[in-house]
Each structure stands twice: as C-alpha cells, then as structure tokens.
Design a protein around this nucleic acid. Structure first.
Lengths: 217, 217, 217, 217
DNA sequence: TATGAATGAGAATTCATTCAT
DNA sequence: TATGAATGAATTCTCATTCAT
C-alpha cells in the first residue's frame, strides 16, 4: 500500500510539472468554477472562456469533463491523507504519541494548513462524491479505509491505556472526525473574520474531544 | 416571529392539501431524483416521465425548475426548526431543563425522527444551499438565526449554572452541532445496518458532548 | 355590395351588444397586447391573465387565436371604409363635390377621428395583413377594391373637369393615399405633442395634395 | 459622426468577409423567412433546416435569435443612409443642387436601386422596429436624426431661395418622405407588373412633390 | 499543441388547445 | 358560461464533444 501511494504521488508531481501554461490555467479556472457553481452547472465553454483557451484545448488534455473533475480532485485528496498512510515519506504520524491529545494536535498542526489551502477542492470533493462512483471508489480505497485503520489502531491503543472511554471504535471515530470537520467548516465560513485565531481554536477543539472521550465521568 | 412562522406553517399545510394528485407525484419524484442525482443533473423531463405527467404540467405548478426546488426544500426546513422558535405551538423546548444533557436529549428525541423521515430533503438542502442565494436567505432567517439564538440562551444559562465550561459560545455551539450532525450523517450512511441502535447512539452522543463541555478538566 | 355590407355592419353591432363582460375584457386586452407586442408574440395565457379570465374562456368565445385576431380586426376595418361604399347609410361621400380639395377635406373630417380612435387596431391590421391570407382576402374585397373604385371615379371626374393633371390614375391614388397615411402616421407618433393641431395639419396636407396634382406647372 | 459611421461600415464589411459559408447561408435564409413569415413566427429550427446547418450553429454565431435579427437589419440600414451622412465617402449629396427637384432626383437615382435590392430587409425592419427598443435606438441615432438634419438644411435652403412654400419643416419632410415611401411601397407590390417603369414613376413622383411644395398657389 | 467551427442530443420553458367539472 | 388542470408539440438555447486545419 505504502509503495503504491508513493508512486501515485510521484506521478502526480511529475504530471504537475509537465503542465503547460494553458493547462494550469484550465485547472485553476475549473477549480474556481466548480467550487462556486457546482460541477454540473459549470460548462466547459465557460471554463475555456475564463481560462483564455479554445474549447477544444480542454479536451486535448482531459478527454472528458468528468476526467477533468477527477484530475482536480483525486491528486489533492491523495496528498491529504498521504501522511497517515505512508511510512518513511512523512514520519510525523509514525512515532508513538504519549496522549491521544498529542496525536490530534500533531494531525491538526500538520493537515490544517493543507486543508485551508485546498478548501475549494475539498468542497468540490464533498459536493460531488455522492454522484460519482469513481470518486467513491478511490475515496474508500485511498482515504476512508487507511484513515479508519490508522485511527482504529490509535484509538484502541489509548483505550487499552485507559485514556479513552470504552465506546465502540466507530462511535469514537465519528465523534472525533465530525468535531474536526466542524472546526474546518466554521473556519471556512468565518475566514474573513479577524477575530478568528487558528491556534486557540485548534487547542479548544482538541480539549473538547479529549474531555468528551475521557473515562472519568 | 412566532406568529409569522405559525402562519407560514399553516400556509404550507394548506397548500399541501390543495395539491392535485399529479402535483404530489411530481414532488415525490423530484425529491427522489434531486437527492439521488443532484438538482442540476436531474432534468424536468426525467421527473415528468417518472411521475407519469406531461412535462408542461410541472411548469403549470412550479414556474421554474428552481421554484420546484424551493417548493420542496423550504417547507421542510421551516418545519424542522419550528419547535425551536415557536412558543405555544410545540412546548417541548419551552420548559426549563435541569441539565444541558436533558436539553439535548429532548431535542434529539423530538427532531431525530423528523430528520430521519426527511433525509432526502435534508440532503438536497445541504447540497444546494451554497448555490442558491434564495436558499441561503431563508436559511439565515428561518433556521440559523433562531436556532443560534435559542442555543446561545441555553448555553449561557448553563454556563452561569457552572455546568458548561467558559468557552466562547460559538465554539460550544459549533462543537455541539457538528457532533449531532455527525451522528445523523453516520446514521444515514449505515442506515441499512441492523446493528445500529438509535437510542444508545443518541445516549452516547449526548454524553460525549456533555463530558466534552464539562468544566472539571 | 351595399346591402351585403349593411348586413355585415348590423351583424357586427349585434354581436358587440351580445358580448359578456369577460368577452369585452378579452377583446380590450387583446387589442392592447397585439398592438404592443405583435400578434405572434402575444400568448393567449398572457391575455387571459391580464383580462382576469381563465385560459379556457378565450377559446369558448373564439375557437382560435387567429379567430380572435380576425374578430378584432375585420369589424373595424369594415366600419372604416363603410362610408365610402354604402349608399344611403352614410351620405357624406354621396354628394358631388365642387373640388377635389373639398372631397379630400370631407373624407378627412369624417374618417380621421375614427382612425385616431382605432389606431391600435389599424396598427395590428397593417402589421398582420401580409401574414394572413384571410386578412388579405377581406382587405381586397372590402377595402382596397371599393376604395380604389370610388377614388378612381372621383379622380377621373376631376381630371375631366381639368382640375387634376393627366397622370395615370394609380399614380394619383398612390400619391394621395400615401400622403394621407403619412399624416396619420406622424400624428400617431407625435400624439403627445401639444403643439400638434389636427385642423391645420389636415388643411396643409389637403393643399399639398391639391397643389401637387394641379395641372398648371 | 462621419468618422464613426465610416468605421461602422468598414467593420460591417470586414465582418461580412470573415463569414463562414454556413454563416452566410444562415443569414440568407433568415432574411427570406423573416420577411415572409415575420420574425416571431420564424423558428430557428426552420432556418437551420433550410440553411442545411445544425441549429446549434446559428447560436454559435449569433448568441440570440434577436441578435440574428439585429445582425441582419442594422448593417443594411446603416448602409442605406450612409451617403446622406458621410462627407467624402460618397459625394453625391455633397454638392449644391440648383433645385429641390434636382436634389430629390439625385437621391432617388442613388438610393432607389439599393432599396430595391434590399426590400426584404427593409420590410423586416419596418415590421419589427416597433417591437425592439434596440432597433428603435439605432434607428433614431443612425437614420432618423442624420436624415432629418440633412433634409432640414436642404429644405430651409430652398425655402430661403423662395422655391419651397413657407410651411413648418416637419410638414414638408413628412410630405416628401411619405410620398417617396409610397412610391417604393407600390413598386414593391406591383413589382412583377411589366408595365411599371421606374424612371417615369420617379419623375412623376418628384414632380408631384415639387408642385405640392411650390409657393405659387 | 492549439484552435474554433460545427454538431446533434437534450435542456428548460412556452404555447395553443382540450376537456372534465 | 366559465374554469383551470393537463397536455404534447414546438421553441429557444446550451452543452459536451469532434475534427479538419
């Protein structure tokens, strides 16, 4: 698994380098339009016009409209979960953490920036996943399963250490993930608000999760 | 506000009664298709065919495709938050609750069924809200604001009683709402799974929230 | 001919009396809309809505949309030329006139008001005549031919008296009719202008025609 | 003004040269159909079929049906009045004329052919002008105003020379224009008639106008 | 690699007309 | 006499995609 993913990411980066000017403008515009109007409501001609290329050019690079969508979404989603899954590539999550809170803090510190930088793509992904079996497939294989596996291991580990209540693992995961997603979501909505402070919001969120899961209650 | 909402709901019900046979078939099919394929990817001819009516009939009743969408989504969303906002109409949330947990339990008992019954419409709403300013407007006015107000009051109340940690109210709300939404969302995905038990999942979720928010930590 | 026309007009008036309230509202609105947007661009539902009747009602009274058009246009056009054609009904143009100028003045005095009162219908007629064979038929039979005949007689008469130049009759008619139509047309366009004076404009126009046709030049 | 118009006409000609084969077929057929059935009663599918192109092709070149109409009508109307307005482009009307009759004769000689060649477009223009504000605008700016200005100057000139009666200028213009339009209109209707003789009809018409306007009466 | 003319299927919407009440 | 729900054909227009240059 890890090797496969490493190859995938290598390929992604290589393809990104090969991109012509026009190609990257297409991608850039497509991200903007898809996230703003939705995939189905964005026309290829709209993209072509805004990107300053001919209609045909899009189809020279991406044989389909759907193919364009996948070319935008899958690389980013793959990169998003890479650190969770890959040994040796990024060692952040490889080490043992003393507490579950430390683990969460490490994840958030590492992935929060990435998610913020790719919010448009994340939005497209969440909007479209339920309509495209191809997305669902790669979601399951490359994101849900590895992530679930990693979290399951960690949670069980801390349950054995007595730091986390003895609830069904999926309940713990659900609680953790939805709280984190809630944080990201809020952050996205109020992003212009100057009063928002990433660090303290992350800290509070981690505490809420850890408290919620702590056995003594 | 309460009177306005009461009128709104009365009108919704009246209009529902006036519906022709064909009209309700249109609505029924539209809900199914919109939630399955998305609004933009569902054609009116598709709806007409499945509902067994002429395409023109749809437009006799709903002057737009968008109008059809709104006619589906807004009434249900209005009904969803009605108990939070209306005094005297439904007294469930009027009374004082001893603990924040009791309050959450009351809400979930009362609204969880409703949400389960209207999951398709809820899905349509969440998919489409970011693309339709009209939806955003009525969401803000009829859902977000009243709900926020109600939660804010309750949370401040329990913070004063020392039952909830002294965090910013919006952080508490975000944590609570996203945890509850996570519950609903999971429930939706694994709905076919026989092992799922609403009652105990609700109970666990309430405990996670209450623990997370409890001051002693 | 005269008897047929008299019967026609009698019938028109009778039918007008039999009209229900709704029916006359339909006619009224149809005239307004047809002249404003054109026949083809006016929908029956538009008329129904503006007239405050059900869509079906229009078709109870006029089996077709085209039938509605004809019901509006033909009676008025028939009435317009009636005085030219009918002996004994309206004697205005029966008498001998001393000069061609007197003849024109008599016509204009008599018919100018009528045309002003029915400008909308006149406009509809002129817009639609080239697209509807039925209109062309009745135009030829009831308007063009009798009018041409009457003018031909009169012009020949005054040519024999030496008052009108010896030009081809159709040239004289064309010149006369187009000048008169030009007057009506201008009057229609500047109708709001306070400076317009029907009497003097008519007088000037008659003089221009008479001068133009006078032999000494 | 003159420069602006010169640019306009240059642009018109350039755009005409750039036209695809299919594009000119579309225009050709559209002219025919619009003038025959009216703009509103001509469907784009009808045009497409007759022109042997796909319906979409029409909309690639003219984004609207109305845009197609304007693309047909405005260039021709602009060309029609060009000689009146442009100094140095066509000097026909630049010189001083000895008599008003000479002036009219020059105009008719020069423009009658053009009008005959573009009768269909002229008809479309006259049919549609009252329904399309865009047409009215460009009519006022590019046709009515310049033409009126030119005629006003000329007429005042000949009034000062004592050749034209002292009537209000607009009355003189109206009389002149409607008589000329009457000529064109008749010519259009009886165009198949072998007995029609352009030269002599024009001569008679000029005389009628000059006589009508001559002061001695 | 890039263009843009051309396509034809299909989208939303309109329309005149019918018919049961 | 009047209604208005219902129709289905037609209308304008859009779209993803192809292909010759």
């Amino acid at each position: 698994m890890e090797q496969k993913l490493a190859d995938k990411i290598k390929k992604i980066n290589e393809e990104h380098l090969k991109m012509t000017d026009k190609q990257s403008r297409i991608i850039e515009v497509a991200i903007e339009e898809f996230s703003q109007n939705g995939f189905a409501s964005t026309s290829t001609s709209q993209i072509a016009k805004k990107a300053g290329v001919a209609e045909g050019t899009i189809f020279k690079h991406y044989k389909n409209k759907k193919n364009l969508l996948l070319s935008i979404v899958t690389p980013t989603m793959t990169k998003l979960v890479a650190p969770f899954v890959m040994d040796g590539f990024d060692t952040v999550f490889d080490q043992e953490y003393k507490t579950f809170g430390d683990f969460l803090r490490a994840i958030l510190k590492n992935r929060f920036e990435f998610m913020k930088d790719n919010l448009s793509i994340l939005k497209i992904f969440m909007q479209e996943i339920s309509f495209h079996p191809e997305l669902q497939e790669s979601y399951k294989e490359y994101i849900a399963q590895p992530l679930f596996k990693r979290l399951e291991d960690t949670i069980t580990h801390f349950q054995e250490k007595g730091e986390i209540k003895e609830l069904p693992v999926h309940t713990v995961i659900r609680f953790t993930v939805s709280t984190v997603m809630g944080l990201l979501f809020s952050r996205h909505i109020v992003s212009t608000d100057a009063s928002w402070d990433d660090k303290s919001e992350i800290e509070m969120t981690v505490n809420l999760i850890v408290n919620g899961l702590s056995p003594e209650s």
